[in-house]
């Protein structure tokens, strides 16, 4: 009798463990309505420092906030729209940064440029990749260091589908 109860406890325990590992793996992709987000990743980066007096004079007008804002990182991902209506990524926020903006990077001849954009269109039944050399999320004012293997929660806002919470993985490259 005691042996049987013991066996039951083991079964319950294993079942609970299996449940835990399943939910831990669920961060790889996320969706809201017809929008699916996958393969979200970032690079290692260092977080903000306390703005401190520098050995070399800082030009007048460079505020502590500006100096601090130099701690940034970029997030890339794939956005897929399985629906028949076009949608647009219009904003983002994260607990890991002071601000998250939508940017585009472009190469014009030998010159590299970066510009903010208002939104990123996700066509009906289509896909848009945020990837090096193109669209990205810019995380400005990182609140902590990001090391390989870390996960960063980012909430991204679509015009129609609403907010999607994603986990971006910090990768070596």
């Amino acid at each position: 009798m005691i042996g049987r109860v013991w066996f039951l406890w083991v079964v319950v325990g294993l079942w609970a463990l299996a449940g835990c590992s399943a939910s831990a793996n669920s961060g790889a992709s996320a969706s809201a309505g017809p929008i699916q987000v996958s393969n979200a990743w970032m690079r290692p980066a260092v977080g903000m420092e306390e703005a401190q007096p520098d050995a070399m004079a800082t030009p007048v007008g460079a505020s502590a906030a500006l100096m601090a804002s130099a701690a940034n990182d970029v997030a890339y991902m794939t956005l897929r729209n399985t629906g028949q209506t076009p949608d647009r990524l219009v904003g983002a926020r994260s607990e890991a940064a002071n601000a998250v903006e939508l940017h585009i990077e472009e190469q014009k001849g030998d010159m590299m440029q970066m510009r903010p954009v208002d939104g990123i269109a996700v066509p009906a039944y289509g896909e848009v990749k945020l990837e090096p050399g193109g669209f990205h999320l810019m995380l400005i004012g990182l609140k902590r260091d990001l090391k390989v293997g870390d996960k960063v929660t980012i909430k991204i806002q679509f015009e129609r589908a609403g907010e999607v919470e994603i986990q971006a993985e910090v990768r070596a490259q």
């Binding site: 290692p44 401190q52 520098d54 050995a55 070399m56 030009p59 460079a62 100096m67 701690a71």
Partner: peptide, 14 residues
């Protein structure tokens, strides 16, 4: 202006 000495120290460590 933004890349202070201490900022560079942290940036290069990556």
């Amino acid at each position: 202006e933004r890349d202070s000495q201490s900022r560079l120290q942290r940036y290069m460590s990556v």
